[in-house]
Amino acid sequence: MNKQTQKTIAIFTLLVSIFLINPPASAEKKLTGDEIARRINARDEGESVSRKLVMEMIDRRGKRRERVTLGFRKYFGDEKRTVIFYQSPKNVKGTGFLTYDYPKADVDDDQWLYLPAMRKVRRISASDRGDAFLGTDFSYEDIKKETKISLEDYQYSNIGEEEVDGHHTIIIEQIPINKEVAKELGYSRVVSSVDSEIWMTRKSEFWDVRGNRLKTIYTREIRKVQGIWTAHRLEVINHKTGHLTNFTFSEVDYSEGIDDDLFTKVMLKRGVR
């Protein structure tokens, strides 16, 4: 074996070793859309969380409205309960919104709204998941799922990769399983860019049931709180109306034991103490 051959074998062995030890991303088995969706939903979100949320709404002329709320979420077994208390401005102060989200896909959520001007807790329909959530550009479904996604409502496909805000993401396409679900959700197609390190969506594009581009949601300021990846800012641009909604989360706390009673109609009326 001459020196040239030995050198060639050495280089080849080195390359193979490097390849085996640290294979390039493109060589990793391509994940299916369903697997990516499962990884998103498997991400730890804590048993419970409390946080302050500032909702900023800006219309196409730049007129700005702001709501300050306190939000709480807790799992009761597989059932997720969420309550939001409005703190300001004065005209919505005291408003409360309570949801019981049941694990069975065919069971509608139970939802109640407390309007202080009426002094009554009102039962509201939870079937229109695609309706705008209390004047924002998020739908009730967006709010309910937070940064997770519904496995039952969509067929998922892995359609590529891109970089979003400096992070590598896998692009998944979500198509509602049928027209009825599409109508309920208000979307005919969703394309989401999912961070493959933390399994959180960094950008989602939505098309309405007629196929028109509807809105884009950006998930930003993602950082760990008590070991849990947490989005601190959600930004929505409604392409049809030019309206923007920004959600800014602060005082996020997963460790505080939240009293079960907070998720009741009695407390919805009384407000957070």
């Binding site: 509608d108 139970d110 939802q111 039962r123 509201i124 329909s125 939870a126 079937s127 229109d128």
Partner: peptide, 11 residues
């Protein structure tokens, strides 16, 4: 009494 059935709430 009150309950919700799809789009309809009865009270």
């Amino acid at each position: 009494f009150s309950n919700a059935f799809g789009d309809l709430t009865i009270r």
